[in-house]
Amino acid sequence: MERGHIFNPNYVLVTSPSLLFDPTVKPLDGMVEGSVLFVNSSKDVPIVDSKKIRVIYRDVTDLALKHVGKDILSATMGAVACKLSGLIGLQSLVDSVSEELEELGLEPELIEKNIQLAKECYSSVESISLCGLEYRPLHNVVEVRYMGERGIPDLLSMGNTALRKTGSWRVLKPLIDRNLCTACGICYIYCPESCISLDEQGYPLINYDSCKGCLVCAVECPMKAIKAERESVWS
């Protein structure tokens, strides 16, 4: 049994394929031969499968949108984990979901929708029971050296959050229709994320690496020139 940080997971569930390659997340670390990787994605994403892990793809975001109308992923991923591991039954899952959401003060109809969502996620995968997987020691223990001024928690590289690619958060993608756009610049003014810029003629350009898909731009556009489209695979 591991608690907190899981070093040798039997099952790994990844909410977005973009996280697979994030150096600060490294979800595949510690996975061994025979362990199971679940990726929330409609398409297969190439994974360097050196350890012969089993990979399952399902688009649970789609299910969330269908049932709840929003990309709420906690109930979905929880349900998948319950089923995959075979450790938690459907009733316990349903009870937990309704209790958690009641605590958040959600209305009964919305809780019911979430339960339906959890149920469908639960039935969307099969249990894979795993035992006797072989673990290899992964880590050496090292001594920390004194690093002088580098050991001071000051940050000197300014404006570097763009490295984080928050575009992976997006469920709906804003698309600008150049035929309707009058280059008024209003979308640029109101984008909270600084990810709309204006070209020389004043036409807006969206930085999709960072755009979180809030669609404030679409609501504010006086020409209704920005349409929302369901994001397919983010890469």
Partner: peptide, 25 residues
Amino acid sequence: TLKDVPREEFLVSGTSLCAGCGALL
């Protein structure tokens, strides 16, 4: 008018604040 708002950005994208956060805007 809004056209007079300077183009220079001092805040780049990629924060972990919620999508649509009014405070960030």
